[in-house]
């Protein structure tokens, strides 16, 4: 479904992403693991059409992000690492904006917003200001904001960062539900247990290069567990290297 070929990005003399290639099948959940500065967020930004690649190509069912970004964007939902919410407004008003950006009409928008809020467990809080929400609730609403246009591919950039374990579990439940519904997920995290629980495949990224691409079971066979694999491949612990 998603094909990434020789994707590159430079910032001045620094190469953030160095000709990486990988593919994701429909309904597959892929984890992108890497320390801070490995190139995870830059890769997500190029796939979502935010950032133009300096080289290479991203295709979603053959649609190129370089040649037809709008068509690709309509099928991709992005959950940014920074909360993409207006805290001054209600949850409902936030979703109205995000749905409107994808051209949803009032009726369709209402249905999709209700469904998204129900999925993340915020249906009864839709009229409240986002500023009054807990960190976990904001993270869940952040995910809901990416679901309104019913994307085929969901890009999640550290969606559980900075939340308590209970909220993390709630978010995780939401993502598992999306997985059950057949959504394709590309997920960056520095929590090994999340990757082990959720991902079908894991890509380990460092210095802009993919160091390993295997299933969780494959990593376990070769390295005992994901953490050991990560330390062996990058030479450092994931938590030490990854920023919040």
């Amino acid at each position: 479904m998603l094909d990434v070929e020789q994707l590159s990005k430079r910032f001045g003399s620094r190469t953030a992403v160095d000709a990486i290639s990988f593919g994701i099948g429909r309904g597959e959940t892929v984890g992108l693991l890497g320390p801070n500065g490995a190139g995870k967020t830059t890769t997500i930004a190029m796939i979502s059409g935010i950032s133009k690649p300096d080289g290479g190509e991203v295709r979603l069912d053959g649609v190129s992000v370089v040649r037809d970004a709008d068509a690709l964007k309509r099928r991709v939902g992005l959950v940014p690492q920074d909360l993409a919410l207006y805290e001054e407004l209600s949850a409902w008003a936030n979703l109205q904006l995000f749905g409107g950006l994808y051209g949803l009409g009032a009726r369709q928008l209402r249905q999709r917003a209700e469904a998204a809020l129900a999925l993340v467990g915020l249906a009864d809080r839709s009229g409240e200001r986002v500023g009054s929400f807990s960190g976990g609730m904001k993270r869940r609403l952040n995910i809901a904001g990416a679901l309104l246009h019913d994307p085929d591919l969901l890009l999640l950039d550290e969606p559980t960062v900075g939340v308590d374990p209970q909220s993390r579990n709630a978010i995780f439940d939401n993502l598992e539900e999306l997985k059950r519904r057949g959504k394709t997920l590309l997920y960056t995290t520095h929590y090994m247990e999340e990757a082990e629980r959720l991902c079908d495949r894991v890509l380990i990224l460092d210095h802009g290069r993919i160091l390993a691409d295997d299933t969780v079971a494959g990593f376990k066979r070769q390295y005992l567990n994901l953490e050991a694999a990560f330390m062996r491949l990058t030479g450092r612990a994931l938590r030490d290297g990854a920023g919040a």
Partner: peptide, 13 residues
Amino acid sequence: ERGVWQRLRSAPL
């Protein structure tokens, strides 16, 4: 400077 900018940029806008 906020995450909203990324969401705006990722939309077909």
